[in-house]
């Protein structure tokens, strides 16, 4: 690689760096201004965009054989599968002959309950 091409390459990395530095600031701003749902939307977009930039321009995934991104996508797909097949159970607080009452009224029980723990070991102080 010629020195000139190398410097061009390095300048490109600096540009990506500038983008990746400013993107989190964007989501920070969205959160600080208290935009509610919009802030969440912005941060998800920022999260995915910065991932996209890092993966394509720094990790050079497009220069690898095709199976490499597919393999990573397979892992991500497995996680989506895990999420969507488990969420109906974990997120529902009642089901066949059971009801997760403590999950519905967490304010009262959001404390450790450990009968065998020595007194004082479990943090009992509120903030």
């Amino acid at each position: 690689m010629s020195t000139e091409a190398a410097t061009r390459e390095e300048r490109k990395y600096w540009r990506i760096w500038a983008i990746l530095i400013s993107l989190p600031l964007l989501s920070l701003a969205a959160q600080q201004t208290g935009m509610g749902w919009l802030a969440i939307l912005v941060s998800v977009v920022v999260m995915l965009t910065s991932t996209w930039f890092a993966v394509t321009t720094w990790m050079h995934v497009h220069l690898e054989p095709r199976f490499v991104p597919y393999l990573c996508l397979l892992g991500i797909a497995a996680m989506f599968l895990l999420f969507f097949m488990v969420a109906p159970d974990v997120m529902s607080h009642e089901g066949n002959n059971w009801q997760n009452r403590s999950a519905d009224t967490p304010a009262h029980i959001e404390r450790p309950v450990d009968p065998l723990a020595p007194p004082g070991a479990a943090a009992e102080t509120h903030h």
Binding site: P24, S27, L28, A30, Q31, A39, I40, S43, V44, V46, M47, S50, T51, A54, V55
Partner: peptide, 14 residues
């Protein structure tokens, strides 16, 4: 780094 993008947004921002 990418993993941190996710952790940062999921824990700190949202």
């Amino acid at each position: 780094d990418v993993v941190w993008f996710f952790l940062f947004h999921i824990f700190y921002i949202i």
